[in-house]
Design a protein around this nucleic acid. Structure first.
Lengths: 127, 127
DNA sequence: TCTAGTGTATTATATTACTATTACACTATA
DNA sequence: TATAGTGTAATAGTAATATAATACACTAGA
C-alpha cells in the first residue's frame, strides 16, 4: 500500500480499513487478518497497525477478542453511521477547499461533473 | 489560524497562502507580510514559515528579494497553472475517496448537490 | 552613513511517529 | 496439556517536525 508522507501512516491504515468496511469488502462480523499479517502485507510495524486498531476499537467499529482476532462490529447501525460520517467528511473537505478558492456552489458541481467526464474518457466507471 | 494535527504545519501554511493567491486576496506582484509578522499572526515559529516559503519559492509562485520582502509572482500564467493544479488535486481527492466507498459517478454528483443544498439552508452562498 | 526592516542560516532541544525487539495473555485444537 | 495462533504491552532507537535563540546579509530611508 502506498502512503502519503503528509499524513501519519496509522491514520491512513485506519482510513483504508474503514473504506473497505463501507465498500462492503469487509462485512459486519468479518474477521480481520491477524495484526502480524496486516503488518507484513502493509510493510509496516505491528505497533503501527495496533495504533490504528486501537482507535477503531475505541470508536466501536472493530471489536477485539484477545486470542481470537479482530472483528468488524455486527451492529449495522454503527456501520451506517460510519458511512454517513465519512461521506459528509469527504464532501465537506472538498466544499471548504473550493469555497476558499472562491468557487461558487454552481461552479463546484460543474467542475466535479467535468472532472468525472474526463475520468470517463479513460476508465469504465459506472454512472 | 487553526491547524489540523494530521498534516505538517508548514504544509498547511503553504496551502493557505496558495488559496489566498487563487482567491485573489493576494494579487500578482503583491508583497507578503514579513516572515516575522507571519510567524506572529500564525502563532508559529519563523523557521516554520520559512519552510513553507522555501517550497513556494522553489515552485516559482513566490519570489523572494533579500532585504525587501517576499512577493507573489507577477506571471499570470504561473498563477493560472497553480489554480488548475489545486482544483484538479482537490477534485481527484474527493473522487478517489468516494470511489473507494464504491459510490458511482452519478451518485457522487447527487451527494455533492445534496451537501451543498444542506449548506444553503444555513449560509448565503451564491449559486 | 547609520538604523530599522527585511530575508536567511545555524545550532540546540522537545515532541511525535515509526520501527525493532521482546515478552506476556488468551484461545482453540491436536 | 502442549502448542500454534492470536491480541497486547513495554522498552529503546531513529527520523521528521516544530520551536527557541542567535547571528548574518541585504535594502531603503532618515
Amino acid at each position: 500500500m502506498e502512503f502519503d508522507d503528509k499524513v501519519p501512516i496509522y491514520y491512513q491504515i485506519k482510513t483504508a480499513i474503514y473504506d473497505r468496511i463501507i465498500a462492503g469488502q469487509l462485512a459486519p462480523g468479518d474477521k480481520l487478518p491477524a495484526v502480524r499479517q496486516l503488518a507484513v502485507s502493509l510493510t509496516v510495524n505491528v505497533n503501527t497497525v495496533q495504533r490504528a486498531l486501537r482507535e477503531m476499537i475505541a470508536e466501536g467499529v472493530i471489536v477485539s477478542q484477545r486470542g481470537r482476532g479482530n472483528f468488524v462490529t455486527d451492529d449495522p447501525q454503527i456501520i451506517e453511521q460510519l458511512r454517513e460520517r465519512l461521506i459528509t467528511q469527504y464532501l465537506k473537505q472538498l466544499y471548504d477547499q473550493l469555497h476558499r478558492l472562491r468557487i461558487s456552489d454552481e461552479q463546484m458541481i460543474d467542475e466535479l461533473t467535468a472532472y468525472i467526464e474526463r475520468q470517463g474518457d479513460s476508465n469504465d466507471n459506472n454512472a
